[in-house]
């Protein structure tokens, strides 16, 4: 089969089905255990982020969350794991054990015996982007390849869920079943990184017990100034470039969704890029906190379910990571009845 490549060189893929697996247990942010040990300023910042609750279950691993979402996505599409052409796991923030493979663990759990299986990551919540690019590349290179499942289980690395001064992490799994046709077409993706910020946020672990692991910012001023302003410039250029190379203007985009970090983060994106972030993002932030690489598609599908995006609409998914990485994805909504 000859791959269908668009005029601009992009090879569109589509999301055939998508699913999320969220733990039932809801944890109110004011009740986070770590709040008691924070200074007054940090505590105030945490409570002002706009996250009211997160889903949390310490009994579920990243693989459990990813598996739950994967099974539902496959079931929705009527696809068996054995028929998958590839299984791409967006790496967990921390593996359960070193040296072992989180990717083949999921392959085994799902029974995706024939799937080309590997892990993609290294870019924080932007890691969903290279995973989609890898899937697109595989499908473009091999016209006979079956559907590709991209999965991620999002859990914080440390015991505490608050990442000062950025967000509160929740638990949640996501699975996207990618195919050549489907109700949500991924038309184009762009991505940039700046390695100068590779360790701006980090968790030291080698010399301390796990209950002392903590998400730390090396330099809060770099985060709130240099990276913020670099994000303004990078994302503006990425967005305009993405639209231009697809022959679109800002008015051709029905909605913008982004990752869910804080209410102020949404305002920053809106003011720095001159766009309006869809209201579902703020609602998902309030209810679920930050789900890493899973945020943008959760927001997109929430908007679709509510009818805020309909057939023919285009949406742009904006992702920014303090690693630092930036990406923008152009999606087009198709007829939703073909989902099953």
């Amino acid at each position: 089969m000859t791959p269908q490549v668009a005029e601009n060189g992009a090879f569109p893929v589509a999301v055939r089905s998508a699913a999320w697996y969220l733990p039932e247990r809801e944890l109110p942010v004011p009740g986070l255990p770590e709040l008691g040990s924070l200074g007054e300023s940090e505590r105030r910042t945490c409570l002002a982020l706009g996250v009211e609750t997160v889903r949390a279950d310490d009994g579920l691993s990243s693989a459990d969350l990813a598996e739950g979402a994967a099974r539902e996505a496959l079931e929705k599409a009527g696809v068996t794991a054995r028929d998958l052409g590839a299984l791409i796991v967006v790496e967990p923030r921390a593996p359960e054990t070193l040296l072992s493979s989180e990717a083949t663990r999921l392959q085994h759990l799902l029974g995706a015996d024939q799937a080309i299986t590997f892990t993609v990551g290294g870019l924080g919540c932007v890691s969903i982007t290279p995973a989609l690019m890898a899937a697109r590349g595989l499908m473009c290179a091999d016209g006979d390849l079956g559907d590709v499942l991209v999965v991620h289980g999002s859990k914080p690395v440390a015991t505490g869920r608050y990442r000062h001064p950025v967000t509160v992490n929740g638990d949640g799994g996501q699975a996207l079943l990618l195919s050549r046709r489907g109700p949500v077409r991924l038309l184009d993706i762009v991505q940039e990184t700046n390695g100068a910020h590779w360790d701006l946020f980090h968790v030291k672990y080698r010399d301390r017990p796990t209950d002392e692991w903590q998400e730390e910012c090396r330099d809060p001023s770099t985060y709130s100034f240099r990276l913020a302003m670099e994000t303004r410039g990078r994302m503006s250029a990425l967005l305009s470039g993405l639209l231009e190379r697809n022959g679109l203007k800002q008015g051709d985009v029905r909605g913008y969704v982004s990752q869910n970090l804080s209410m102020a983060g949404f305002t920053f994106s809106e003011e720095s890029l001159g766009i309006e972030i869809m209201s579902v993002c703020r609602e998902n932030l309030r209810r679920h906190g930050h789900l890493g690489p899973n945020d943008v598609f959760l927001n997109l599908y929430t908007a679709i379910e509510r009818g805020e995006l309909a057939e023919g609409d285009r949406a742009v998914l904006i992702n920014v990571s303090p690693v630092a990485a930036w990406s923008a994805l152009l999606a087009e909504i198709g007829p939703q009845e073909t989902a099953a």
Binding site: S221, S224, F225, M229, A264, G265
Partner: peptide, 17 residues
């Protein structure tokens, strides 16, 4: 004001703008 912990990303954006 950065050393005093008064600045966040939104403030930085407002300042530069």
């Amino acid at each position: 004001y950065f050393a005093l912990g008064l600045a966040d990303s939104l403030f930085a954006l407002e300042l530069v703008t």
